[in-house]
Design a binder for these strands. Structure first.
Lengths: 147, 147
DNA sequence: ATTTTTGCAAATCATTTGCATATAT
DNA sequence: ATATATGCAAATGATTTGCAAAAAT
């Protein structure tokens, strides 16, 4: 989860201008540990009277996704969400209950992908692994049917 | 890729009525090897004068996805697509060029997921692995920059 | 006969776009 | 000064819904 400053620096580093709305976006995103949709971010910004326009939220998220600061996520419900992330490419476990998103290490995924490429004959250019479940905290809350 | 009959049998087996529109859906889906969006299926059905309504297409796809006859796919573009599949849970390699979708064997994914569960502390309930690239055919067509 | 399913058109929800204005460089 | 970025409101696209009519059991 990158800090607001890091996010802002990403805009800067890629040659985008540092504007008030972008600072606001950086602040909003840097403040969350969970995933969020464009609409949710917009709602939060309204709650704080940041005066961000809907289009700006979508446009900034697009840019940040391109820059790899934020990663697109497709929830099991079909909704499009985002999570902030530091590393350029990797994967997340997402808590179905509280929405927390945690990076997962690449424990052998690359080799798996290589194997799948070989066995399918495809040239694999990109892949996405999404994991959904309960985070340790929510899991503790659900004191039922399990260890 | 299940046959139209198999798809129809899935409706039946789950207690859904066998209607003309559902037969049409089964036929349309059984006839494709690639992925498709609801809208595309609707367009095809119109081309063949099958008289399917838009709502029916969406509703049937929902049911079939629940039954596991069809799997939801999120294309890199963000579009929601579907692929027909036989086995209840598994993954696909999707050709970015022609849209062909091929099942991939589970070469160690389960163990990987287990390892990730252990290292993250999450209880992982579901996961999705999506692979995008070029199928052998399209790859041959693209005689350039590669082995 | 009764219940499920359908098609339609309208409603809803998500995302994008045009354009005049405002802002960063 | 100049180019980029913004907000707005309208446009677009995708999906869902209400409901009376049609079809399956």
């Amino acid at each position: 989860v990158p800090s607001a400053e890091t996010i802002l620096a990403a805009f800067d580093g890629a040659g985008y201008r540092l504007t008030e709305p972008r600072r606001a976006m950086a602040g909003l995103i840097g403040a969350r540990a969970d995933h969020f949709t464009a609409e949710e971010l917009l709602a939060t910004s309204r709650g704080q009277r940041l005066g961000l326009g809907r289009a700006t939220v979508f446009r900034s998220l697009d840019i940040l996704a391109d820059l790899g600061v934020v990663e697109r996520l497709d929830l099991p419900t079909g909704a499009h969400a985002f999570v902030a992330c530091d590393r350029p490419h990797h994967h997340h476990v997402v808590c179905s209950s509280c929405g927390a998103a945690t990076d997962v290490p690449d424990q052998g995924l690359d080799e798996l992908v290589d194997r799948l490429a070989a066995s399918s004959g495809y040239r694999i250019d990109r892949h996405r692994l999404e994991l959904f479940g309960l985070c340790p905290t929510c899991r503790a809350g659900a004191l039922r049917d399990e260890d």
